[in-house]
Design a protein around this nucleic acid. Structure first.
Length: 782
DNA sequence: GTCCCCTTTCTTTTT
DNA sequence: GAAAGGGGAC
């Protein structure tokens, strides 16, 4: 798709695609199936608009993720270089708008955007004000309810009214009290949460018609991506911007709506046709991504949804190998054998690590996979886990900047006032801030004058004054750059001192994270140049996400949830844990709401359609969940009468791994021949020697895997060596190992073979632990 | 004021 | 089984 230019466009486009590109006046709804080249079409549409004389200033393209917006911007840039147009995420766009018109909703221009942690803290505080008990009503759950209300544009007043008018449950009783108080806390802190960014702007556009007119005039052409995922607030914003100039182009796919639980409304697509009766609806049904086999299976699955507008899925691509459902005896075998399979395929030289993706419904499934991949030496990147910006040390440092940028940001101040520990515990803090309120001072002023606060200990007062001194000495203008300012924070607060020289892995990780934060600041400094502000940097930090860092070409296998996979594609995809209660998730089943089951089905549909060439669904007979081993039930979605798949046992899968030629599909299919480059055929066993990337060098003596001792290795088989490999002794006495938690160590003693092998390891940091090799995350160090 | 142990809970989380 | 949050002990 690279290297194309704007002029050679039409020849390579389908009729539907050209329609989208060429008709940019008036409302349009693009229903784009998976892999239908949507981004390409949208970017070409923008290019066409620019070429036709539309001013770049009049175009607004909105996406959901940073990644999508960056990609769109890059691709437009490639087509029509040097144009400045607004391509942004919903939240970023709203943050911009709010910085321009903060007063209208009671904010100051330097407001901060709170992350989930701060939001919970704010809820806590609100509940504290109301004397509500946080044990019985967990703040997280309350926050969740409030967030849902905001997504639906329900204000605290309306929430309360709704509650009063209904026979409310006691939950909503609590929420209807907390919600307004929470908003008050946010306003006092001159801050907003993620949802507020949208809600405030929606309010702005509704209550200030002149402003709406002005923005509508300014953004005459609005494009929205992933329209099926818009919530009420986003819908309102988009529609408000498209009244005078009704050039709204929404692209989306109802079949890929997987964020209903976050307030996304598929109905927004249906409503579109009501709001804009003259809408042109274009369907992009041709898939350029997947093989016929994959598409047929996905189509068969999604056709089972009742609440759906039927859409064809067609492709000119080859048939490809059949979609396979593999049944493993348990989750560990699943992980091990998949790792082994990938190793073998990569060793054969036909694929690289980054061709593979592992998708799962819940994050907890990543753990056994991780263990197996580490042991097998398969390089992987895991998306999600603990997002960078959520890390303790990062949030602390960012909180320092937040207080500097927005002195009203009490939540941030509370966070850092005793970090590193200065002997200013909750009690002293309460005293200081209570005194501030009585005296009518800002919290910072109170800290400065702490020595005159009655009943505050000498020690606490001293620390408070010292803290105020540090803060007063910090200034962006003086420091020159955000990165430099951060370095000063680190130096003056000594926050990293406890981590220096301890050698502890987590401390080392903390230090690295701090470095990374500074690096991120440097990057921002460079990008923003002289226009750099603290608010600007903080905005990038709070609106950043882990997903932005997915590198599809990282030379690693990618592990992530099905949700995170939306919008991505990989040559080979494993969707694992396709079992009842996982997909569909038991919560959805228990909800009794068929629409929730349909969302689960769409989720699997999204996962399946990520695959370009080879797709595996896997299930385990026994799965250990919540620490308990349970017999699983096959997923409703894969029942034979619903979905025709090639069903393989783990042994058949293994055989296929080691000798592609030995395995014949059970279903008669002539399809295989059509695909030239897949594993599953073409076993000419070409030289694999030294083809593997570094990590897997230990091929002759693989890290322990239960399958290894009875079978020949993939590499040997492919090389034509039919000698069996020796039974691995794995982790011999005296060998060096690494444990993710305890660090480096040495094997003291070992006993047993195979799955029962246990080793005792003495770790450098002193402790000695015994592990079942198969179940532990131990890695050999060469 | 801090730490540790107990209980509880266990989707998904574009921003 | 593991992490997180709250309550109680020091």
């Amino acid at each position: 798709m690279d290297g194309e230019n704007a002029t050679s466009r039409d020849a390579s486009m389908t009729l539907a695609q050209s329609q989208v590109i060429n008709n940019f006046e008036g409302p349009m709804l693009v229903l784009a199936g998976p892999g239908s080249g949507k981004t390409r079409v949208v970017t070409h549409r923008i290019a066409h608009m620019l070429e036709s004389g539309v001013s770049p200033r009049q175009i607004l393209a909105i996406t959901f993720t940073n990644k999508a917006s960056t990609e769109m911007a890059e691709r437009v840039e490639k087509l029509v270089p040097g144009q400045r147009l607004a391509i942004s995420t919903f939240h970023k766009f709203c943050a911009r708008m709010l910085r321009l018109y903060p007063g209208a909703v009671g904010l100051k221009p330097n407001f901060t955007i709170l992350d989930t942690g701060d939001q919970t803290a704010a809820i806590r505080r609100a509940m504290h004000h109301l004397d509500l008990d946080t044990t019985h009503f967990p703040p997280n759950k309350i926050l969740w309810r409030i967030s849902k209300a905001k997504n639906d544009l329900i204000t605290p007043e309306v929430f309360q009214r709704n509650f009063d008018e209904s026979i409310g449950n006691h939950w909503d009783a609590v929420v209807s009290r907390v919600y307004p108080e929470y908003q008050k806390v946010l306003l006092q802190n001159n801050s907003v949460d993620f949802d507020d960014l949208l809600v405030h702007v929606a309010v702005l556009l509704t209550e200030f018609p002149e402003l709406r007119d002005q923005l509508d005039e300014r953004f005459r052409y609005v494009l929205v991506d992933e329209y099926q995922d818009t919530n009420q607030a986003q819908y309102r914003i988009v529609v408000a911007l498209s009244q005078t100039y009704r050039n709204l182009c929404a692209t989306g796919d109802p079949d890929q709506s997987i964020y209903g639980w976050r307030g996304a409304r598929i109905e927004n697509i249906l409503r579109f046709e009501n709001d804009f009766p003259d809408v042109k609806v274009v369907r992009l049904e041709q898939n350029f991504r997947s093989t016929k086999s994959i598409l047929a299976a996905a189509d068969q699955l999604i056709a089972k949804n009742i609440y759906r507008k039927a859409k064809a899925l067609v492709t000119d691509n080859v048939q490809g190998v059949p979609v396979r459902l593999i049944r493993f005896s348990d989750g560990y075998r699943e992980a091990d054998l998949i790792a082994e399979h990938m190793k073998a395929v990569v060793a054969s030289g036909k694929r690289t690590w980054s061709d593979f993706a592992m998708l799962y419904r819940v994050n907890s499934l990543s753990q056994p996979l991780e263990v197996a991949f580490q042991r097998a030496g398969v390089p992987y990147q895991i998306v999600a886990g603990m997002p960078f910006w959520e890390r303790e040390e990062i949030k602390d440092l960012v909180a320092y900047l937040r207080v500097l940028a927005n002195p009203d940001d009490d939540l941030a101040l509370r966070r850092i006032v005793n970090k590193p520990q200065r002997g200013l515990g909750a009690k002293s803090q309460d005293r200081i801030f209570a005194w501030a309120r009585v005296e009518g001072l800002t919290p910072m002023e109170a800290l400065e004058k702490a020595s005159s606060i009655p009943q505050l200990s000498k020690k606490a007062a001293l620390s408070a004054v010292l803290f105020a001194k540090i803060m007063n000495g910090l200034d962006l203008a003086k420091a020159g750059s955000v990165a430099e300012l951060l370095r000063e924070v680190v130096k003056k607060t000594g926050i990293t001192i406890p981590w220096l020289g301890s050698g502890d892995e987590t401390d080392l990780a903390r230090l690295t994270n701090v470095e990374q934060l500074i690096a991120a600041a440097e990057y921002y400094d460079k990008l923003a140049g002289e226009e750099r502000t603290l608010e600007g940097f903080l905005e990038t930090t709070s609106l950043a996400s882990d997903l932005d860092n997915v590198d599809e070409k990282a030379g690693k296998v990618t592990l992530m949830t099905l949700h995170a996979a939306k919008g991505l594609e990989f040559p080979v995809v494993f969707v694992c844990g396709v079992e009842e209660n996982l997909i569909p998730h038991e919560r959805s089943i228990n909800s009794g709401n068929p629409r929730e089951i349909e969302e689960e089905r769409r989720l699997l549909f999204v996962g399946m359609t990520r695959a370009k060439e080879v797709l595996y669904l896997t299930e385990a007979s026994v799965r250990s969940i919540h620490g308990r081993s349970t017999y699983t039930i096959p997923s409703t979605f894969t029942e034979p009468q619903h979905l025709s798949l090639d069903r393989l046992s783990e042994f058949e899968f293994q055989a296929m791994t080691f000798d592609p030629n030995s395995f014949q599909s059970k279903r008669p299919t002539t399809a295989v021949e059509e695909f030239g480059t897949f594993e599953g055929e073409d076993g000419d066993g070409d030289e694999f020697e030294d083809r593997e990337p570094g990590v897997t060098k230990r091929r002759s003596k693989p890290a322990f895997s239960s399958a290894n001792f009875s079978l020949t290795t993939a590499a040997d088989l492919l090389a034509g060596n039919n000698k069996s490999i020796e039974i691995p002794t794995g982790f011999p006495v005296g060998s060096a190992v690494r444990h993710p938690r305890y660090g480096k160590g040495q094997v003291l003693s070992a006993s047993g073979f195979g799955p029962r092998r246990t080793v005792t390891v003495k770790f450098e940091q002193g402790r000695t632990e015994t592990f079942m090799v198969q179940k532990s995350p131990l890695q050999p160090l060469r």
